[in-house]
């Protein structure tokens, strides 16, 4: 396997709110199958960065290439792109008016127009894998936060994306539920899913990520293999950040 085109490339990405800069020229290359953890203090722009990759934020400069196809143009069909880049949010937004199964099937049936039988089989298999096969007909209000977040992940996976973006998916969960969600993500890593993960769970990042990027004030300050980043951070900012997190 030599010289494969990277699945995702970000070049000099700039994002501003009014005249307030949020991202000042981010560069990143993501190889297929890699898991990248994005760390940094709150307000550093890491969530905004993920949202840009999914077209939820308008960008002011630079380029995003999905398998060498640019996403920064007026003609970009984000609905298509979003079927290849799945995203899960902090607020585990299941649609409360739909059952678990209906939540999962919505996009595959209505957007992708896939046959119901096939999608349902896939959904059941995924639910099985996250340990929630028996909750298919429940409404979101009957589930705990951790269960809802696992369903939200299944919902995103069922679209068969090439890349998954996780935006602080455990940040609003009770501590005892964090584990069950992280386990699901770790499983995905083992299966070779390409993932970008914004998280505050340092141990988890160390365990699962291949690479770490450390962001502060809209810039990438350090980009290193995970093991090296945690054991021997190169920049002062990253050292401070890791020190603060250790009691």
């Amino acid at each position: 396997m030599s010289e494969q085109v990277p699945i995702l490339q970000v070049k000099k990405l700039v994002k501003t709110y009014g005249d307030k800069p949020v991202l000042n020229g981010i560069d990143l290359v993501v190889e297929k199958g890699k898991v990248i953890a994005i760390l940094g203090p709150s307000g550093c722009g890491k969530s905004t960065f993920l949202r840009c990759l999914n077209g939820l934020e308008e960008v002011q400069g630079g380029d995003i290439l999905l398998e060498s196809e640019s996403l920064i143009s007026k003609s970009t069909d984000w609905r298509n792109v979003r079927q290849r880049i799945g995203m899960v949010f902090q607020s585990y937004d299941l649609f409360p008016n739909l059952t678990v199964m209906e939540n999962i099937l919505l996009s595959p049936l209505k957007v992708q127009k896939r046959p119901r039988q096939e999608v349902e089989a896939q959904a059941r298999e995924l639910l099985e894998r996250v340990g929630l096969a028996d909750r298919a007909n429940d409404y979101p209000r009957q589930l705990s936060g951790g269960q809802k977040q696992r369903i939200a992940i299944v919902r995103a996976l069922c679209i068969n994306p090439d890349i998954m973006l996780f935006d602080e998916v455990t940040a609003s969960l009770d501590p005892e539920m964090v584990r069950e969600v992280l386990d699901v993500i770790a499983q995905l890593a083992d299966q070779g899913m390409t993932m970008l993960i914004v998280t505050h769970e340092m141990n988890f990042a160390r365990l699962v990520a291949d690479e770490v990027i450390f962001m502060d004030k809209g810039n990438i300050h350090e980009h290193a293999p995970a093991e090296r980043f945690f054991s021997d951070p190169q920049t002062e900012r990253a050292q401070q950040f890791l020190n603060i997190l250790q009691f």
């Binding site: 649609f95 209505k110 992708q112």
Partner: peptide
């Protein structure tokens, strides 16, 4: 946003 993120 979630709706958009799953391509609706």
């Amino acid at each position: 946003e979630t709706g958009k993120a799953i391509g609706l």
